[in-house]
Design a protein around this nucleic acid. Structure first.
Lengths: 157, 157
DNA sequence: GTTGAAACACCCTCAAT
DNA sequence: ATTGAGGGTGTTTCAAC
């Protein structure tokens, strides 16, 4: 079990997975696929939204079709550990739209950023913008040779 | 410039960003925000869909609300480099729903998986399922202490 | 590019069971 | 939980400009 206040049954689960795969499904279709009336289905979606589980939908875009063909994970070790520096660093990262994801991590690195870029020239440009005046100890790019899958739906614990 | 056959102007760009943030926007709202008639806006969305750029929408879900509070990146180095082993390994990974993203990477590791799990016990369980009978050379978990952001919208190169 | 209109699907609510 | 019905909203396609 877990420490959540709300619980979800198998039907909630299936609804969440269906919607994570395709948020464009109509309530009629959704209801049909989970074996509920459209009305009952609506009530569940409403409940899941109220519970803060469903948080809207986002368009899914083909990065390749936009000319973004390279995914790289950038590992960063910093020399500074004060709040002021950290704020400045985060602002820097946030100003770089190529970076789609940003974590503070444990282990031998301090931060990891995921970036999606047109190619190696894009990485070089990003790298330069990233490091300028930040006095980083070490930065290394881990390049995705092949994205086998991404964005798979989450299931309740 | 780049090597794409289709090009996108500023308005396409803004439409794509708006929809990546909120696919639930009505065409009336979209049109208003980019300064187009609803009709012209519809034609652009149609064109972007035909071009394979817009690929539907996906529900956005709050992982914490589902009890999934830990994100970990799993770095894997393998001892095998033949196709049969690789296929078996991919099938193993695909069978683990906690893994949301999977890359073959360059550098000192061979694969990287992103997993979203309830907590450390979930990692241990995942780790055991992952390694069983796969004869991996080395596996290490890089834990996200803080997800500063993720899922930021892509922009054309 | 624009407006306006029509046909249709969908969402949401309510009433009745 | 279910069906059925109604009003309002959104989508898609036209015709005309």
């Amino acid at each position: 079990m877990n420490d959540r206040s709300v619980t979800f049954d198998e039907i909630d689960n299936r609804l969440l997975i269906l919607l994570q795969r395709d948020a464009g499904l109509s309530q009629r279709e959704l209801a049909e696929r989970v074996g509920l009336s459209q009305n009952a289905c609506w009530r569940r979606l409403h409940r899941l939204t109220e519970a803060g589980v469903l948080r809207g939908s986002r368009a899914h875009i083909d990065a390749h079709a936009l000319g973004l063909q390279l995914t790289v994970f950038i590992m960063i070790r910093t020399r500074h550990h004060d709040d002021a520096w950290a704020r400045r660093f985060r602002a820097r990262i946030e100003a770089l739209p190529q970076i789609t994801e940003f974590h503070r991590i444990g282990g031998e690195w301090d931060y990891m950023a995921k970036a999606v870029i047109p190619g190696m020239a894009g990485y070089d440009a990003l790298y330069k913008q990233l490091i300028a005046d930040m006095d980083l100890e070490r930065v290394t790019g881990v390049f995705s040779m092949e994205t086998i899958f991404e964005g798979r739906p989450l299931s309740p614990a």
